[in-house]
């Protein structure tokens, strides 16, 4: 029961965040690149004011899978690196924390681009 409830939270919050993105698309007609940028900035902001972890505690994947989570880890990485390395952490923290995701995206994109060809839309 507890597991079911936690998954329900993930579903509801994840869905709501995505619906917010769709609402932005419908009302302002902005492109997907701008949507992604907006949500990354929201993530950075949530982490900067230190509320991201509170949401993450019960929303789990619901807030971490949306690109908001990517923004939050960038900011979290920068902040924690500042604590250990000082000024250098400002430069190294963000990308270090998100290196896995970025490298994976680049690597898979490269491999699949070599394998596949674009398909015409139906």
């Amino acid at each position: 029961m507890e597991i079911f409830l936690s998954y329900l939270w993930v579903f509801l919050i994840g869905g709501l965040v995505c619906m917010l993105g769709e609402l932005l698309i419908i009302t302002t007609n902005i492109t997907s690149a701008r949507i992604l940028v907006t949500f990354v900035l929201i993530g950075v902001f949530l982490e900067a004011i230190d509320v991201f972890d509170y949401i993450s505690d019960f929303a789990k994947a619901g807030i971490n899978v949306p690109i908001i989570g990517f923004g939050a880890s960038l900011a979290k990485g920068a902040i924690s690196a500042v604590k250990t390395h000082g000024l250098l952490g400002v430069f190294t923290g963000g990308l270090t924390a998100t290196a896995g995701g970025i490298a994976a995206a680049i690597f898979f994109a490269f491999i699949f681009a070599l394998i596949f060809k674009s398909h015409t839309k139906k």
Partner: peptide
């Protein structure tokens, strides 16, 4: 051609966006 115009004026074919 749909696919050449799409790439020149808009987005890659495989991008998951919606058409207004």
């Amino acid at each position: 051609h749909f696919s050449t115009a799409e790439r020149q004026y808009r987005f890659p074919l495989e991008l998951g966006n919606q058409r207004p």
